[in-house]
Amino acid sequence: MLQSMTGFGTARQDGDQYSITIDIRSLNSKGLDLSLRLPRFLADKEHEIRTILGKSLVRGKVSLSVDYSGTTKAARTANSINQELLQHYYTELENAADLVGASKNDLFRLALQMPEVIQQAPRTEEEDAQMPVPWEIITELLQEAIANLNRFRSDEGKALTSEIMAYVDRIRILLAEVDKYDPVRLEYIRERIRTHLAEISNSEQFNQNRFEQEMIYFIEKLDIAEEKVRLINHLHYFTETVYLPEPTGKKLAFISQEIGREINTIGSKANDATIQHLVVEMKEELEKIKEQLNNIL
């Protein structure tokens, strides 16, 4: 079954000390084009992450982002008290209490709540580079996000499969019309040949052998029987390839080129207005197929 190249997958885990989310988005691309946005502590794991993505996603313009944040409990461990500012606020509050004769029981708590008394200490580069989340959890979340992306791709692929196969069936119907009309075309050609033969057979310059050779060449040039057989075979092969389990986008693109070649040859050899119209319709359906194949993995 076909898979779309476009999709989205996410995975999230909220721990006691952290919250981490992995998002993966995929768009159309001829190959695998990876773009990663990672926190600093995963910088040395970039190659491994790219390897995991490459094995699972095959093709597409893939953007991965890892968002990490420490929880309130984790952030509290990095807090510090500005003792000088605390002393300043406490003294000011104490003086104000003496001035109005108020109680001093809550002065320390009030001073702690004053602006910028409790400050979060800046993290060093060494602390940023430390792994706050086990690598095993990162890989599990990464595989979960990939699985969700591939599930999205498969769902989109089902819709694309139905659409593409409708176009293929339409080409089959049009080819059947060509096959139905072809005997009429050939009979018309034969009648034209008989008329011309009657006109020129009495000519003194008439050469029977040369005339027969030219007629054989002419008839072979107009014969589209082989092209019709090859076209129906290509359509069968295309259908079989659509339902293979592995990614088949590139193979289907090659087969569609062969389908187009046979359709064009039928049009050029038929030398008939009715068949030309059918050929134009087949080309239109093939263009729709090619357009959708740009979205196929």
Rank of each mutant, 00 (worst) to 15 (best):
I146P: 00
P183D: 11
R194G: 01
E199D: 06
S154L: 14
N209M: 10
S162P: 00
V117L: 03
D182V: 07
Q120L: 09
R109Y: 10
M114N: 07
R151L: 08
L160S: 03
D182Q: 12
E126Y: 11
L186N: 07
V133F: 07
V133H: 08
I173E: 15
E199L: 10
Q120C: 03
Q119W: 07
E127F: 05
V184M: 10
N150C: 05
H196K: 15
E136M: 07
P183V: 05
E116D: 12
V178H: 04
V178P: 02
Q208G: 09
I193H: 04
E177M: 12
Q205L: 13
K180S: 13
A198D: 14
Q205F: 07
E187T: 09
V178D: 04
L197M: 10
L112D: 02
P122I: 13
V168M: 06
G157H: 00
D182Y: 11
S201Y: 09
R123E: 15
T139W: 05
R185K: 07
V168G: 00
I171A: 03
M114Q: 13
F206A: 09
N209P: 00
Y167T: 00
I171K: 01
Y181R: 10
I189E: 01
A129F: 07
R109S: 15
E125P: 02
L112A: 05
Q120Y: 06
V184F: 08
F206E: 11
V178W: 02
I164F: 00
A111L: 05
E163V: 07
A111G: 06
R123L: 15
F108D: 03
A176V: 08
D179A: 15
A129R: 08
T139A: 13
Q119R: 14
E163R: 11
F206L: 09
A166P: 01
D179P: 00
R172Q: 13
E199V: 06
Y188T: 07
D169C: 10
L107T: 05
E136P: 00
E156L: 04
E191Q: 15
D179W: 10
E144F: 01
L197E: 07
I171N: 03
R153A: 05
E177Q: 15
E204T: 08
T161I: 02
Q113W: 01
I138E: 01
K158G: 02
A111T: 06
E177H: 11
T139M: 12
Q130M: 10
K180E: 15
K180T: 12
A129S: 12
L160F: 01
L149P: 04
